[in-house]
Design a protein around this nucleic acid. Sequence first.
DNA 1: CTGAAAGCGCTAACAA
DNA 2: TTGTTAGCGCTTTCAG
Lengths: 346, 346
Amino acid sequence: MKKTEIRKPTIREVAKLARVGLMTVSRVINNHPSVRASTRKKVEAAIVQLGYQQNEAARLLKGQRARMIGLIVPDLSDQFFAACAHTVQHLARADGYMTLVVSSERDADLEFQQAELMASRKVSGLLIVTSTKAGDERLQALQDTGLAIVAFDRPLPGVDTDCVLVENRGGAEAAIAHLIQHGHKHIACVGYDEETYTVYERLQGYLSRIHGAKLKPQTAFGLSTLDDVRNWLTAALAGKNRPTAIFSVNHRTSIYLLQALSELKLRIPEDMALIGFDDFDLAAVLNPPLTTVAQSPVELARRAMGLLLAGIQGMQNGVSSSPAKILLPAKLMIRASCGPHEAQKS
Amino acid sequence: MKKTEIRKPTIREVAKLARVGLMTVSRVINNHPSVRASTRKKVEAAIVQLGYQQNEAARLLKGQRARMIGLIVPDLSDQFFAACAHTVQHLARADGYMTLVVSSERDADLEFQQAELMASRKVSGLLIVTSTKAGDERLQALQDTGLAIVAFDRPLPGVDTDCVLVENRGGAEAAIAHLIQHGHKHIACVGYDEETYTVYERLQGYLSRIHGAKLKPQTAFGLSTLDDVRNWLTAALAGKNRPTAIFSVNHRTSIYLLQALSELKLRIPEDMALIGFDDFDLAAVLNPPLTTVAQSPVELARRAMGLLLAGIQGMQNGVSSSPAKILLPAKLMIRASCGPHEAQKS
DNA sequence: CTGAAAGCGCTAACAA
DNA sequence: TTGTTAGCGCTTTCAG
């Protein structure tokens, strides 16, 4: 209630203290070259003395971009995306950016709407794991506005951006090869949401290997609940081409599978071999330890941020090189859910 | 490169189209009461027609607060906090706020620094899971500036804010009571970072029940790696008061315990009973299913957001009621890691 | 190399 | 109830 409100110092007061004009201060702040070294010294001293900090609102009003980046993921409560968000935010901070995080709830419209909101807040860049199936030119418009955009985990259909992807297909192929090495002839592939890019790619990898080995593919998608999984499993076991191994392309499905298998008193790997896409910290603790295909969310996010920061630079300098595409490896983590190691000798 | 840059419509153009003064438009936007209904209609029509959107930068410059809230958690890649962040961001969006998310990496200084940065960005409110051990009056200063602050999961020492906490102590007591009912006399309590509020509370709950039953407490903290856990476990098993049950107050420690136990070929619950604080989706799938003390990150975040939104309202109206304190229950999820249910009859 | 003037889009305070 | 004036703190002209 006192009259002595602690007003933040402005560029004006810095100028007064340094006995120079406003513009000189502004130039110093923005590292403009045409300032004599001695003058710059004075101004810098004044800045320190006053503890001056730029007022972002004023800069925004003049049309500059905020030192913020936006991150949009399908589901922030998902372990994988949470790890991405953590890394992104960490790296952003190191570069003086704050991070606006949004979960699109796998809704393409919401995703776009939020992207637009972020753009209107003048973020410098946008990192996005899209939930769009069809191409969405609307994002292209944002990019043309001078907003740097990087897609990761999934490409942005219809928009020509930098992107960082994982070798989903290769990872799946490695998994199936492993199963085949173990002598399996009936390998099922299950998951949900096969329209998602990553899942689709994994499915393609599965199919490619299965066909390559002249085996019969056996797939089931849309298995998004424990009940779904249980039902499918009992049906599959009763069917004629009873699978002896399952490749699960979604983390959630893997968990349900584990549960359903346990309920049905089926032993892993004796009665059923299992490989899950996406590693998780408990995989090694399970009984038996689960063989998985691992991808690194940290590396994914790190590379994406690298591209984004470069993109922001590029936008500022008006440089626009052709979009970079990075492909990260997926690694098969061989544990015990496909049987003993020995079997590996074909 | 065309001259027709798509400039966003301003309040001025809306005014022109609606044939009113600037202020009238401003008033309509801000729901100021003194605008005739008919006038408001006209303005609203113009707003829609032009697709006008407020320019936040300009408002900020006039000293208003941004429609953003800040969220600071110790570690965003932690499942629990990720779930909190997801809920917060979801609720914030529903109220038209964007969310600035930061991981403090359990560093009190970084936490404060980020809080200050958010404040300088004029966020309307701050949600924070503190990593401060000692009191930190610096945050109090921010609050006095007119920033709404709500602490959750852990209270903010030295700052008088709203806060939402979980019954950590009660949850721990329930866990120990359960173990005692099962006839255990040697119950160890392990974890790391006992200085953290939540862990400390759990420890107190453990101690209180152990003493109440005239048993000897046996605690070990600082167990932050698998090696730590393994070493402690082998030592404890060799000791004279060999524990028959373990209460793990940290999720991570529980996982390591599971792993170490498995390595040592100890069966759960026959050779060692186990209860972990913090539930997780795989707990039910483990072999055997793990008994845990569950708390709901979603509910925690939901209540915190409720308080924050109310607090923001309060700040705007200059109302300042005494801080609200909410205590949420923790629930014992009885599964099979402490032995058969029957044993419950004391 | 430096400085003065002119706003960016908005709202608080006053007039009408 | 409405409109007018005066900036918020900064950067982009354009002169010196």
